[in-house]
Amino acid sequence: MTVLAPVLRSEWAKIRSVRSLLVALSAAFVATVGVTVLVHATVGRSEADNADFEPVHSSYFGLNFGHIAAVCFGVMAVAGEYTGGGIRLSLAAVPRRGAFWAGKLLVLGAVALPVGLATGFGCFLGAQALLGEYGVGLGTPGALQSAVGCGVYLALLTVFSAGVAAVVRSQVGALSVLTPVVFLISPVFAGVSGIGDVVAFLPDRAGQQILHPVPEGPLGAWSGMGVMALWTALAAAAGWWSLSRRDA
């Protein structure tokens, strides 16, 4: 850790000194909680009358919009190094690329996790408060797990996106790979029989299983999160490979 400490300090300074990164990070919280609150304040109680209404999972409706901000945060933090050739100076300062990459991912995850947890608890508590008599408490089976899981999900999604960005080395490139996966393929094909079981193993679908008190499909709450963690490890390894093998 003593070897990594200067890298961690430097990487944290990089994040807090770029306004767009702070905006993206805040947007993950604001958009997710905001949409959830807005929906529950307006149609929440009328929806709650439906027989198949499930108050826990319903809390995270805003994540469908907010998680793209976590993707942007991860992508921008890495791709920003490649705009203007800053990566050369960064690697001249920290030539051990493994330490550089580990430090960057640790800081990104460590910054995204508390924001993710705040988002998770904000969504759940906000939604339940607005549901009034239909609302449930954190003691409900799966409730606490879902709020914590939302935080872990956003942290892993950030690191996953950072890994993809290190391979693609461009903001536009990385977002054009990640946005369709998160916004189109997963939601659209999730309901299609046959493909649905495969789509369930995509990083976002798998990680979001934890938001259901009773998971749907082939993956459970934590096994789903495990699959997402594997995707994240894969992306981090691919990013490391790209960073260590290619000339800067």
Binding site: P6, R9, K14, E81, G86, S90
Partner: peptide
């Protein structure tokens, strides 16, 4: 031009200084 365009000159140098103690 090897610096993040959105960072101030001081912050740019600070990130480098921190990485090398």
């Amino acid at each position: 031009a090897a610096a993040h365009p959105a960072r101030t000159a001081r912050d740019h140098l600070l990130t480098l200084a921190l990485s090398n103690r």
